[in-house]
Design a protein around this nucleic acid. Sequence first.
DNA 1: CTGTTAGCGCCTTCAC
DNA 2: GTGAAGGCGCTAACAG
Lengths: 341, 341
Amino acid sequence: MVPKVTSWDVARMAGVSRTTVSMVLNKSETVSLSDETRRRVLQAASDLGYKPNSAARMLVRGDTETIGLIISDPAILPIDAFIPQLMHGISQCNREHGYHVLLEGITAGNSANPYESMVESRRIDGMIVLNPRSDDPNLRDLIDRGYPVVLVGSVRHPDELSVNFTTSEGISAAVENLVGLGHRKIGTVPFCRAGLIGTDVRLAVLRRELANHGIELPDSHVEHANFSAESGHHATRRLLERHPDITAIMAGNDTIAIGCISAAHALGRSVPEHLSLVGFDNLPFSPWLTPALTTINVDASLQGKIAAELLIKRLRGEPITERQIKLPTSLVLRASTAQVT
Amino acid sequence: MVPKVTSWDVARMAGVSRTTVSMVLNKSETVSLSDETRRRVLQAASDLGYKPNSAARMLVRGDTETIGLIISDPAILPIDAFIPQLMHGISQCNREHGYHVLLEGITAGNSANPYESMVESRRIDGMIVLNPRSDDPNLRDLIDRGYPVVLVGSVRHPDELSVNFTTSEGISAAVENLVGLGHRKIGTVPFCRAGLIGTDVRLAVLRRELANHGIELPDSHVEHANFSAESGHHATRRLLERHPDITAIMAGNDTIAIGCISAAHALGRSVPEHLSLVGFDNLPFSPWLTPALTTINVDASLQGKIAAELLIKRLRGEPITERQIKLPTSLVLRASTAQVT
DNA sequence: CTGTTAGCGCCTTCAC
DNA sequence: GTGAAGGCGCTAACAG
């Protein structure tokens, strides 16, 4: 079907030995080859469309030039646009560095250690794990054993390699904005129940920032959603029906914010006239929602890129200065927040 | 770091030969092994956490149990939620069948044949190509050579394996709905310029369906966007400024529809009171937009699943009855269309 | 039922 | 500068 061309064919065509072919192609420095030989080999290789068989190469070299991209809960992949942005950053960076990306999903219920088979089968050199549960013992174990892992999220392991956002600036700015507009009764719709690092710290930070302004965030002002617009809609309804006096909501992400807007409408309140709304993530569509969404900006693609760079550094044994990288966030002021009426 | 355990270790622990181990693990039928032996081997393998080294296995068996997922224009990955849904379907199906997914992006500008290196390096057994350009010669060549490819999209090759939607029912129903509501001046904002099978056929179908109702779709009623809400916003503005008498718009996808809504608002028209809007894709967030989006439903996840199944069938040499699979579409009526005023 | 043997295609010393 | 030889870990004949 596709004619199998081996280093043998290249060698014969260039009139040299397979050793020479290998040396030229791997830019080996152990011996000095004539430019002429080098050129002939390269020429033959390109004429034949030769690419070294990756399996053979993996076997002998012991690495795969592939990293695993582990999606902790693949069901949210189609739901929230954050992961695709991350993936884009990751795959782009990997391509630049000559790495491939193997996509793996792990589903929550699975009893066995889901990482073990990925590690043991040696299909990948290391992995980037998206949204790990912050108490995942298998992951902590993997890190303990020194396997190359980079987390987008955290398991609170002192040695972990991870890339996250310092949510404080963004949330602080949002709170400041809201309070400045006269809001005192503020609710929030986190993107999932406790257990992911994102929810936990964001909620804590929000609470702290509100406290700085003398505002309390009682548990009843927190209504959990589940990444999706649908869940955001329902959570907001519950929240607003319980506390009609809430005048502003911090949504866990921009997708949830979509649901907040429609929930408010369903209750006869419009955004921002009767309810101010702040999103989180600044997704590409967020400026174009109606009303344009005020949100906390994070650079998901950059996060992905940096995670990939970190892992590649690790794989290549380069020195790593910062093990837990924090990226900044900022408030993007648009039309979904307004003076309280 | 991670202790390397080989079939040798398993053999020794179980007190058998490596052959036996291999046979047990691959459920070889050529010989009949005693249940006791089988059990001992399995036990040892599991105790040791043994997984066959995938590189060695690939090398000797000549396949990789991996399929390539080729994203033609990776930049749209973070923009439009359609691809993530597809990916979800694909990766799920592959997992069920024991295949892995290698993610590859090809960027338009790249001069060389981007598929060649994937094929030659033998990292994958076959590929699913998302959104190929319908005139991609490299892809046609690959199909000619009998390489296992499944297209999500089409290159109009008679032998291609592809999975697409029969857009007619959905568009026909949408047109019927719009016309029934009294709309006569209808515009459209396709999701990209010509060249992708989706745009080309959808536009043709729309034109035909409108013609059935005696309505013309002049070129000036078509304003191309580029997958994103932003592009949808700008295209809609251009369209509406040029033709203020347009009362209904068919958006190329739901993300673009977001931009249509805000563009209408910016021009002082609200949806659906002053402009009816029909989306395409029925993304998870679409029911929760304000107004809830009337749209054409496609099951992207199913499309992915079927594409994966088709490829796996092909790889396993199973008979393929339908080479070009068409999935149905349907109109989902919600709140973004209304009687023309 | 088990062990021996021969590669899969490549990379890497090591002599020439 | 080049060729021969060994081995990465596994599978699949083929004999015992």
